[in-house]
Simulated assay, not measured.
Amino acid sequence: MNQQESKFIASAAIRLALSPDRDAERQLKEQLAQEGIKATAADYGGEFITSVQKVVERAVVAAKREGVIESTHQAEGGVAGAAREALSQIMPKAVGLNVGGKVGIARKGDHIAVAIFFAIGLLHLNEVAIGLGHRAI
């Protein structure tokens, strides 16, 4: 897989994480499937620290449910590792605050990307952020 393909897979995960609703998400997944990319997304929300484990679990469950990965230790660990990497990029902004958003997961061949979109809330002041992780499985 060349650098352009890895970049496209990362872009696909980010676009899924930013999709505004289930219809847009479904259309994007169909478009990506035509290009040989398996993809899925999952919503989440809650206090950041208590949500970390739930976000990682939802990413792995969604990827297995939608056939993006097989039910193997390597594949599940790849998704979990990429999700934790994405979460760690945003942690300094989100610790102690409520977060909500979507996880986007895209895979082609041995490469998988996990993008996490965060809306980080404090009263009526909101911040937004995206974390991205990549693994080869």
Rank of each mutant, 00 (worst) to 15 (best):
T40R: 00
K102G: 03
R58P: 00
V95G: 03
G36V: 03
E35H: 13
G109N: 06
K54W: 09
I116V: 12
E35V: 09
V55K: 00
R58S: 13
G78C: 13
L97P: 03
H111F: 13
I49S: 15
N98K: 14
R26Y: 09
A24T: 14
K38H: 10
Q53P: 04
R22P: 09
A39Y: 01
E30A: 11
S71A: 13
V56Y: 07
A59K: 00
K102E: 05
G81C: 07
A82K: 02
A113Q: 01
T40L: 00
G77V: 08
T40A: 00
S51N: 10
N98W: 11
R22A: 15
I69L: 05
R84C: 06
T50E: 13
E76M: 10
A59W: 00
L97T: 10
G109W: 00
K38S: 13
V52M: 13
A42L: 06
K93C: 01
R65K: 15
V95P: 04
R65H: 11
V55T: 12
E30R: 09
Q53W: 05
R65M: 10
A63V: 08
E57V: 10
R26Q: 10
L32P: 05
K64S: 13
K102N: 10
G67S: 04
G77F: 06
I49V: 14
A24C: 05
V99I: 15
Q31P: 02
G104N: 02
G46P: 03
G109K: 01
R84G: 05
L97G: 09
A59D: 01
A94G: 11
A41M: 04
A82E: 03
R58Q: 14
V61H: 10
K38M: 07
K29G: 01
V114S: 07
M91P: 03
F48G: 07
G67W: 01
V60T: 14
V99D: 02
G96A: 10
Q74N: 12
A113W: 08
K54L: 13
K102W: 00
G45M: 06
V52P: 08
L28H: 03
E70V: 07
